[in-house]
Write a protein that binds this DNA or RNA. Sequence first.
RNA 1: GGGCGAUUAGCUCAGUUGGCUAGAGCGCUUCGUUUACACCGAAGAGGCCACAGGUUCGAGUCCUGUAUCGCCCACCA
Length: 1168
Amino acid sequence: MPATTTELAKQYRPADVEGEILARWDDANAFHADESAGGNPFAVVIPPPNVTAALHMGHALNNTLQDILVRWHRMMGDNTMWMPGTDHAGIATQTVVDKRLQVEGQPALKDYKRIEAEGGNGREQFIDKVQQWKDEYEARITDQLVKMGCSCDWDRQRFTMDDVCAKAVREAFFQLFKDGLIYRGKRLVNWDPVTQTALADDEVEMETVDGHFWYMKYPVVEERDQGTEGSSDQGSEQSLDGSMARSLGRFVDTGEFVTVATTRPETMLGDTAVAVNPDDPERAKFIGRNVRLPIVNRIIPVVGDDYVVKPDPESKDEKARFASGFLKVTPAHDPNDWEIGQRHDLSVINVMAPDASISKDHGWSDWDDTPRDEFCEILLGMDRYEAREAIVTWFREQGLLDDVRPYSHSVGHSYRSHVPVEPYLSDQWYVKVTDERLAGAALRAMVADQRSDSDGPIWRDGEEERHGGTEARRHEESDGDGAGAGDVNARRQPSAGFEGEGDPGALRFYPARYAKTFQSWHENIRDWCISRQLWWGHRIPVWTAKINTRSRWLDVSKMGLNRPTPFGIVVAQLTKLFDWSDDADEAITWDQSIPTGTSRKDRQAGVDESCPTVIRICSRDPRVDELLTEFAKQLQDSERGIPIHSKFQQLAECVTCIERDPDVLDTWFSSALWPISTLGWPDEENNAALQTWNPSNVLCTAREIITLWVSRMVMFNTYFRGCLPFTDVFIHAMIQDGEGQKMSKSLGNGVDPLDIIHSHGSDAMRFTLAEMTTHTQDVRMPVDVVCPHTGEAFHPKMITNKAGFRVAAPVQKCPTDGNKKFVTGYGVASGEAKATDEMPQARNTSSRFDYGRNFANKLWNATRFALSHLEERHEGTEARRDEGSGVGGSLVDRWILTRTADVIAQTDDALAKYDFHRYAHTLYQFIWNDVCDWYIEAIKPTVKGDAGQRRVLATVLDVCLRLLHPSMPFITEKLWEHLQASAPERGVDGLPCEPSELLSHAAWPRADVALRDEAAEDQFERARTVVTMIREVRAENKVPPREKVEVSIKLDAELADMLRKSEAAFTTLANITIVAMGPDVAKPEHAAVVVRPLAEVYLHQQFDAEAERDRLTKRLAEVEKNVKALSGRLNNKGYTEKAPEKLVQETRDKLAEAESEAAKLRDRLGGL
RNA sequence: GGGCGAUUAGCUCAGUUGGCUAGAGCGCUUCGUUUACACCGAAGAGGCCACAGGUUCGAGUCCUGUAUCGCCCACCA
């Protein structure tokens, strides 16, 4: 295509270029990777953005950095694949959609829940609504990524809930279940009593609340028929038993009291112990005794637990100042108490209904067994805060309230309903990540030099005991395989990519400090709750069947089965139906359910392990779900007398009821599989993509996600494939606003990348983001607004909002026309202002991106200049390499080539270390200062007639475009097209420039060491110094820049010779005519003088005594200061004796030079 | 409460094993529209490197402590 500089606008206009370049890449399917292509594999998986919202600046940063790495490796010839996709983001998306439905006045979640409860398909209907949202935002996110220039393999785009990923999720769940690493257990969840759902931890907002500490007295009791002393030993054991409480009559108050301190008196109804610190000298003696819980009259033990803070009124620790030393233990309503309960095997008594009112019907297991006061019944049905008032009043009236002290503390609130969350006991699914095979494997995955061994053994014994994985352990034992890590690896299929870099033990963090976060997380990890009471997500593939206890054993032998268990019967039936033949073990597994009481005693009550009443079935075969759905329906129908289909009859004899688990999996479960699910795992056979690109090479992410995501990917990838998900983890900074606040939707300070692309262009955004990326944690980006009336960008008027954040005032005035107004992102987000036709919403922008925009424009114009000269080769001055002056023969040419070679090396080094700042900064300085300010200026007088020089120019430009392409893909691709047309022959010895249709596919530059020319660098440096001297004296003497002046220069012969060789360049740069130059040049009359060690420059006919005296005096002061510092250093004996000789010699040389210059300056001053 | 980071020019930030006469971009001052670029060029001004101790011949850089800001984790006695 004919391309001439006339086509290039005087200014770079991104909007004119970006669309066209995107189309070219698209036409060429430029970023599609072929797994069979060979070469070093290089893979990156995108951290899949949530489909909750459009991308913001943090995503722009994250994806820019990935794209830089990906484009770099693609150009280096690696088999490069960047996997794009999005995350379904369970609760966040469900909530956002629910909110939108509410705002739009449409049926919302609660309506669909009602439909579902009434037997309709509310669940499906609601999921459809979420699906619509997902489609909309997935498209929007993809559009944003495309417009940012992300070179993802769009043919492979995935979504965490698409079929491919769902298959992986199901398989992973099945395997973990089968291996005893998934279990069902009780846990306190963050319960929102208003919306009546569990909340994830990150959906809980901490707010400081002014409350009180109440000090309540519990009477100490002892058994009547024993002495007053030493009754404790057997009492504590037995008091756990409900039968003990029934015989309260055996206990009498001793008249002693213990005083517990609490911020939540209402939970005392559920107390099952009082704890004291065993090291507490005053109170430890109570351990083993019992107290009577007032109101309820439950007899509860005093236990010793070092969690309890010892009281100390002088302590810095607020808790110690407020503590009474006795801690009431309410396992059902406090997470810490739950832990204490686990340690001491305490009963768990839940005294609240899901709406957080006091209730006896949700786990108040000893309601009928305690001789409670009548007052207890009055409390039933009260809201938790009413109950608090009532209970405090009761204690006061009974004289049992010791004290009340004001106390402010932080309390978790629901981000949805804004009420305090209630820790609430419920059944949940867990992954036993505390297992050696998971957390242990994650620790072993770390590269040795980043792992600190400070905290004893990597794996601590007895961990699972503390975190309550009892059921899972039992299962493991019953399976009898007790699979250790070696076992796991043994049955994994080894794959081509497993050796070397991807081996466990190769995981490395950049910057290294984040390895610590990773390590300590795994050393203190708790089992992972993976069930969520939501609709949007991967549904848990488990069916719960109730066993017909009457018939279950009778017919087993007659049925001819070799599995005399209810599970065996189910399997036998399903095997027949699905023709699994001998592979049933591979297709289906089960978990004998234990009634989910919470103390060991509860669990044991009435449970005969050989005769479970309920089994949980998990299958890796999705067809089972369809079949069991049908079966479940038939079972229901059969209650209405409809006969069961013959194929289900045998099943129906042993199963009375079956239903699918209603919960979905935590979003992070599918995210944890992302590196393998996207590549088609679990299919290993003939799956070249998986073999090639797993492990991938680097994960780029923000640090907040190390625990949530990185950890789990490492554990799962290691467990399922025996290799790492990636070898490098690069953690980049978080972008804050100009006030140092996190960017967030609610503050309206988030910036849409498309807004920046609109105001500055994609390349400018990317390059600036790269330049901002240092190895610190956070970077600030002041946010400006663009007046929608005039397009003017300015810093908005800020206010402090109610929560104390600095935000843009909701309504702003146009800076040029005060009558026109507009609203800001904060105004809209906070609901304080609404966008209208007269008052539209402003786009955000930031002047930070001027840096990249100006640089893009500089590159654009430098290229325009270069191309206008390169085209002239058509006019008959056809160049052959090494002809005439020779390629790179002149000093400036040799200099720019050696600089180019140096910059290539620096660029490689920076990128290899994920040092994006240095990458961008190096190129910025090189292109702007070296290429534009010096090289191009220097060659202006000669380039037209010097074909060799044009070759160098074309080569340097070529290399600049290649090096810059990863960060500025659009402008460089566009300019590449023109360069191809104007100068198809490029490259010099030692720096080949192989042609390529697309710059995206061009080879990464590689320079021969022979191109390095230290002499040229040194010589050019001296020439540059002389030019700068001349410019300085010109400016001081107010010589207009365009005026050519006559100059004589006194310098040594070698330098004079060199400058004469490059005279055209030299005189152009300084805009001078040389009158005389050499060691013997004398100062002419009426000449201005500038003196440096290197040379003395005389500006003819510019003598101005005053300016001269000023300049020389000023310089002399500087030099004298320097002399003083240098000689001071040399006079220090310690320095000359201990510092390296080379350094000392350098100092001596510098001093000599400075002294010589000082002498000359004094001489000149004397001559004035 | 535990952990991590930051504090360097008016602003946003570099400064890699201690050797610094401390740098960049923006902003500011002076000059300038010579045909690549005013999103530009030339020349300049501007810093007790948060504070206090220590190690060292030598500290922006290493150690200890203090202050302020930010982030992550934990946290309802």
